[in-house]
Write a protein that binds this DNA or RNA. Structure first.
Lengths: 336, 336
DNA sequence: GCCCGTTAGCAAAACGATTTGCAGAAGCAG
DNA sequence: CTGCTTCTGCAAATCGTTTTGCTAACGGGC
């Protein structure tokens, strides 16, 4: 019982394959009565056009991919629920409404060779400067758009996720809550989010008239490294009363450090982080973070990719970040 | 600048396309020197075999899908992070290591027509009895396996997620913690997990010698409905001192109901739910739940699907569920 | 010297759709 | 009756691979 093909259907209907094709696509007129007969027969035989054949002819697979090169520990986390998955869920919805399928390319050591399949396009999540994924897909001439701009590559369409603005928002909040000496934990991988965060922090420190206290941390080591470094920072300068963590794993580490040092939060140390994910919400105390409006961002990225595939290059900007103030920074606006 | 094809490469190398194909696949011997030349030229020209053409020839797209028909509110949740996404992340990893890509088919009203693309196979997440998705893919002759058996369809390979056992584990725990009159909130959609949960609950009630107190709830209405029904149950029978919620959204509702009625947890009401997701962890108090070992389950499902595509039908069983006792059921084994 | 097996390579036929060029029929105006 | 358009429908080319015959050359054993 093999799947019926267009020629099976044509034979059954007593017409040529061309006529069948036209009957479905409507690219050329077909006698209504003939079309009806073909339709009925197709339903009865369970005929569905082969997507592979169509893909070969049209050059479109109808599949887009979502890829991240972020270390797994950061991207998906021990809990497997993170930034990436949140975007994935939204992007899948957006893709589906456009009759596309969304493939997940998880961060993976062997992702270089990622590939039995080809995609019509790829959405990259927070690529770094000179990210191998960018090179990989450009070599394959696969259209690429990015969530978070690609450093040094203004030519690649991207949804700007306003990391500078987000950082400023959080730093202002910490300052307004009473912190006067705020340190920053920032990822050392050159992603736009980290680059902008660093710049925004330096601006902020200058405006405040304080010397910047900034540590760049390897994302892969995440929580443990952040814990050690935070401890070191606070021991070196006990006047530190605020911490901005650009990555939520760093924030978890900072929480542990504060606990180890007996620094009560928020009274003796205020903490804020960027992404309002599981870690921020589950932390004790819950962490002040930012609603980045990822579903809308994902939707925009899909649209941007579609435009790009269609030959129109564009740019997009995410919705403005909204502060989610929680206990870690003082007054709580969020009871849970 | 169009992508080079195999015949471009053949022309450049001064051989036939057949030879190029053999040089890559190794299905027939090719003079080492010729092969070297072809390889070098391929690298230089940036040639990559077209997956679409290969798919057409071989009948394999190299893409598998993960689909769920669970209402969106339950499957992905307001937080967009749930059971489904947790499985998706793991399945994507498992697929990648087998050189497959994983497509997400989110629950969607228009999922009937889900489809610009065809897949080599589909993993269904907790399908219901007579699930339209099952029918849909069977009509297209797409191999299907399921996470959670398909009710009345023992012929469909599935990873048994041991829902009866999970239910018994939680009920025993509640009883051991001191609850003597335990009510059950169970989804009304006929998924194996709910069917088995109901059966296990009825067995448990009989063994305890108590009349069963069981409510079947529509998954779609989730939290609100569960809240109302829990309130009604407790008002009708104030002796109820334990609740088993088969779906985490129901548990959230029950928490709210307990709060509304001034029933302190865990002292005057113990609560346990099945899936240890965001809701269970974020709840105040945190909810006792079960570690279902989803990554291993996803891995097994991918393997099962591959077997099935290869013509071998099998069955698999998930790792035994592990209790995660938290504050909602009394003694806490989980400090966060 | 003949036969047979191995090796290297080519031409052509799939795979299943879409699209283009062409042909016959029908309708209408001049 | 001729010339023109419009309507149907078919045959064939195309997309880029893989696979199947087939040929020719070479070498060794008898």
């Amino acid at each position: 019982m093999t799947k019926p093909t267009i020629s099976d259907l044509a034979r059954a209907a007593g017409v040529s394959v061309t006529t069948v094709s036209h009957a479905f696509s409507g690219r050329r007129p077909v006698e209504p009565e003939t079309r009806k007969r073909i339709q009925a027969l197709a339903d009865q035989m369970g005929y569905h056009p082969s997507h592979m054949a169509r893909a070969l002819r049209s050059g479109r697979t109808g599949v887009i991919a979502l890829a991240s090169s972020m270390p797994f520990a950061v991207a998906a986390g021990p809990s497997r629920l993170g930034f990436l998955m949140e975007i994935a869920a939204s992007a899948a919805m957006s893709a589906l409404t456009r009759d596309l399928a969304l493939c997940l390319i998880p961060p993976h050591p062997a992702a270089q060779s990622c590939g039995a399949t080809s995609f019509d396009g790829v959405i990259l999540v927070e690529p770094a400067r000179d990210d191998p994924l960018v090179a990989h897909f450009e070599r394959r001439k696969t259209p690429v758009v990015s969530i978070g701009t690609v450093p040094d590559r203004p030519d690649i369409p991207a949804v700007d996720i306003r990391s500078g603005e987000t950082t400023a928002l959080l730093l202002d909040h910490l300052a307004r809550q009473g912190s006067s000496r705020i340190a920053a934990l920032i990822g050392s991988t050159p992603r736009t989010s980290q680059i902008e965060a660093e710049a925004a922090y330096l601006d902020f420190a200058k405006a405040q008239g304080h010397p910047p206290i900034l540590v760049r941390l390897d994302e892969a080591e995440g929580e443990d490294l952040a814990c050690r470094e935070t401890r070191r920072l606070i021991q070196a300068d006990p006047r530190i009363d605020g911490i901005y963590a650009a990555i939520d794993a760093f924030a978890s580490g900072a929480v542990r450090a504060a606990h180890d040092l007996g620094r009560a939060m928020p009274d003796r140390l205020r903490l804020a982080t960027r992404y309002d994910g599981l870690r921020a919400k589950l932390s004790v105390p819950p962490l002040t973070a930012v609603d980045l409006h990822l579903p809308a961002t994902a939707e925009r990225a899909v649209q941007l990719l579609l435009d790009r595939i269609g030959g129109r290059n564009g740019q997009a900007v995410a919705d403005p970040p909204d502060l989610v103030a929680r206990q870690s920074s003082g007054r709580s606006s969020d009871r849970s």
